[in-house]
Design a protein around this nucleic acid. Structure first.
Length: 752
DNA sequence: GCGAATTGTCATCAC
DNA sequence: ACGTGATGACAATTC
């Protein structure tokens, strides 16, 4: 359960992140919040703080249908939920709690190699399925081979509040489609027949209508739609034949995001992943020329897992490491790649990394996170998707401004090693660092290397004894001192770090971190906010503005929505007396101490209102009732404690984020330090080689010099020196020694 | 039953 | 002056 919780929580967070990055506003909370106490329990864990709310939600969402968070009869529960919500929807003010900008569930035409495979039935079914997405009641459920978590998710969608309306259902259906397509890639293509799933989800509603009726209805109603659709033979997805490439690529990216997530997303223990899923996943990925960067950058680690199709832990770690790299690489990777690449050839390094490294992905993700969360899909992806051929070049172009520092240092290094010296002199450098692949993780030097560097420093400062330095360097090279310190690799970072907000520890800067990382930051907050929504809590409201999904979710607003007024009503009347009793006991146990106190004191309104109402309305509420002094006192205590409780939770979250940010900053600094040390080593090597070359030239020039008699000068008696005007002059050795001593004295004096 | 982790509460300060 | 958020410290609870 713990692992499931972890996967599910982080998976949803990542999923939200992915969707938010591509500009789709999706409120996962909708699926977790008021409708699904069991899932909330799974995610949030048992907590008195949350349980209080959960109990509250439970009471009001179940309407008497008892459900224990840890022993859930989901089918019964969901069915009851759906029916009740439908009834309630009849007279309910609807609140849009989910906003979807665009949903395109089809692949780009280029990627559909199998689109040539005729599959009219699937086309029909898919198109109708998509259309049916807004009208879930039209299908007939049919028992299919898939009974995994997707089923639950479908039900999950079915119990979305009626107030959320079609969009929510659409969301879930589409997500469900995407999930299933990959979860079931190993199964037959009929899996992708949306009508199958539709039928499954609605089997409890329209058993009598039969499939023939439904199919004929569909075929009749969707002919026009079908005409314009092509079908991907592998995934069964249909897509408009004339859709511009931009949109298709966008849809692909979305799909690939979901695909990636789902591949790493363990949907419960009963989810079945057929062997060879990974290979299917591989096949489903479009060819490289058209593939989005997400695919090349994100999927590749997953695709290497074909040997063990679903090593979930490994898959998950892959995803987390990728997420980590996405955060890192914008700042580090490109510079380091450039740096490493220039050990041999800068241009080669650049062009070789362009097509198959995640730089492009980095750029897009970075931009997405920097930009508005509601960024348009087309604008978000236009740079890479609109003209895929330009993707690599744009990546290169964007490298420069982002990594100007790295580039400069790179050139600095290159100038020394590559420009000043002929290739043969550069061989040592290349041999040492050439084989190194660009390391996006950032290499760190071990202590041995630091020692070597210190020794080399000593050698330099002591007048650069070439022999000594060479020996040192040989030792250094033989130790392959550029080895990375694995302890500092991102793999060692906690997964939560990937979702932690960036920036420094100060609260003010932590605000800016939200704009940088969007939904990534304060993920735990969103959980908190979720629970607070129905409770009407106002905790951490200012941070709502930092989230993409905050627009309509001011809990204080929701709190006053008329249809929420029934919150707190007791709907246990339709329960059997025994179960009602159990329910009552259960709820009693879930109540907080203050709730018990309030009940004992017969406080005529909910603790929820006591805590979360604005002060004016709170006072107004108090004035409406004739309350004793004890009651008033208790009410104020409840309000104080309730607010403080939320404040404490927020405070702890901030503290945790601060710690994580500091931890990440330390890691960044360590990487920077190691990078600088590596550069220093390179510079030292270059200087040594330069000196060797100067020495060689010196000997060559000196050896050619002849005196008046045509005899060579003795190196013991004469030496060559640079004059101040840049010329080279021959002076007696004694004089040269004198000058050297003077220089040394001056240098010592300066040091003092 | 114990210790660690988590959560709730109080006191206090700052805004 | 009052309400509220933030936070350290401690207690209670949960794991």
């Amino acid at each position: 359960m713990l692992s499931l919780k972890k996967y599910f929580t982080e998976g949803l967070i990542q999923f939200t992140i992915l969707l938010s990055l591509i500009g789709v506003r999706v409120d996962v909370d909708t699926y977790l919040n008021s409708q699904l106490p069991p899932l909330r329990e799974i995610i949030l864990g048992q907590s008195s703080a949350y349980t209080q709310t959960q109990f509250h939600n439970l009471r009001n969402t179940l309407d008497g249908y008892g459900i224990h968070p840890k022993s859930v009869d989901l089918d019964y529960y969901f069915t009851a939920r759906r029916l009740l919500n439908q009834v309630r929807a009849l007279d309910r003010f609807q609140v849009p709690t989910t906003e979807v900008n665009a949903w395109l569930v089809h692949r780009d035409p280029e990627g559909s190699v199998s689109s040539a495979q005729p599959s009219p039935a699937i086309t029909l079914e898919n198109s109708s399925g998509l259309q049916d997405g807004t009208n879930p009641d039209n299908g007939v459920r049919e028992s299919g081979p898939e009974q995994g978590f997707g089923e639950e998710l479908e039900d999950l969608g079915a119990v979305a509040p009626p107030g959320n309306g079609d969009l929510t259902k659409e969301d879930i259906d589409l997500i469900d489609i995407l999930w299933r397509q990959d979860i079931d890639l190993g199964a037959g293509r009929e899996i992708f027949d949306y009508s199958h799933r539709q039928k499954e989800s609605e089997v409890d509603k329209e058993l009598s209508d039969g499939r023939e009726h439904t199919d004929s209805w569909r075929s009749g109603g969707n002919e026009t739609l079908d005409r314009n659709l092509l079908v991907d033979g592998e995934t069964g997805e249909s897509f408009p034949a004339q859709v511009p490439g931009v949109v298709d690529q966008t849809a692909l990216s979305l799909e690939e995001c979901l695909r990636l997530l789902e591949a790493t997303f363990p949907f419960g223990e009963n989810s079945e992943f057929p062997a060879g899923d990974a290979s299917h996943l591989n096949e489903a990925v479009p060819s490289e020329s058209e593939s989005s960067v997400i695919q090349s950058g994100l999927l590749s680690p997953l695709l290497t897992e074909t040997e063990s199709p679903f090593d979930l832990e490994q898959q998950w770690q892959d995803l987390m490491s990728i997420m980590e790299m996405q955060a890192m690489e914008v700042n580090n990777t490109t510079a380091e790649i450039l740096y490493n690449g220039t050990n041999g050839d800068l241009l080669t390094a650049n062009y070789s990394l362009a097509p198959n490294t995640p730089i492009n992905q980095n750029v897009s993700l970075h931009q997405a996170s920097l930009g508005s969360c509601t960024q348009d899909l087309s604008s978000l992806f236009s740079s890479e998707i609109e003209s895929p051929s330009m993707a690599s070049s744009s990546a290169l172009l964007q490298l420069a401004p982002d990594n100007s520092t790295g580039l400069n240092t790179t050139f600095g290094s290159t100038n020394l090693s590559g420009i000043f010296f002929p290739p043969q002199l550069n061989s040592t450098v290349n041999e040492t660092t050439g084989p190194e692949l660009p390391d996006p993780l950032g290499g760190l030097l071990d202590e041995a290397m630091l020692d070597e560097i210190s020794l080399m420093d000593l050698a330099i400062e002591e007048g650069f004894n070439p022999v000594q330095a060479s020996q040192l360097e040989e030792e250094f090279d033989s130790d392959s001192g550029l080895s990375l310190d694995s302890s500092h690799s991102p793999a060692s970072f906690s997964s939560s770090e990937a979702s932690s907000s960036s920036s420094s520890s100060s609260s003010s800067s932590s605000s800016s971190s939200f704009s940088e990382e969007g939904a990534v930051g304060y993920s735990s907050d969103s959980e908190n906010v979720d629970f607070e929504e129905t409770e009407g809590a106002v905790g951490y409201q200012p941070e709502y503005s930092k989230f993409c999904r905050m627009s309509y979710q001011d809990p204080s607003e929701l709190h006053y929505l008329p249809y929420l007024e029934h919150v707190g009503h007791n709907h246990t009347y339709n329960m059997a007396p025994e179960s009602s009793e159990k329910q009552s006991d259960f709820l009693d146990k879930q109540m907080s101490r203050d709730e018990h106190r309030a009940r004992a004191m017969k406080i005529p309104f909910t603790n929820d209102k006591i805590i979360n109402l604005p002060v004016e309305e709170f006072n107004e509420l108090l004035s409406k009732y004739q309350l004793s002094e004890a009651q008033l006192s208790l009410i104020r205590d409840i309000r104080r404690r309730g607010k403080n409780k939320m404040a404490a939770q927020n405070c702890r979250k901030r503290k945790l984020d601060t710690i994580l940010n500091l931890e990440r900053d330390v890691g960044d600094l360590q990487r920077d330090k190691s990078k600088l040390l590596r550069e220093k080593v390179e510079f030292l090597k270059s200087i040594r080689q330069m000196k060797q070359k100067v020495q060689k030239l010196y000997q060559e020039v000196f050896g050619r010099l002849r005196d008046e008699n045509g005899q060579p000068y003795s190196p013991n008696q004469y030496s060559l020196q640079y004059a101040s005007d840049g010329s080279v002059i021959l002076i007696p050795r004694a004089l040269a020694d004198q000058q050297a001593r003077r220089k040394e004295r001056k240098q010592k004096d300066r040091r003092k």
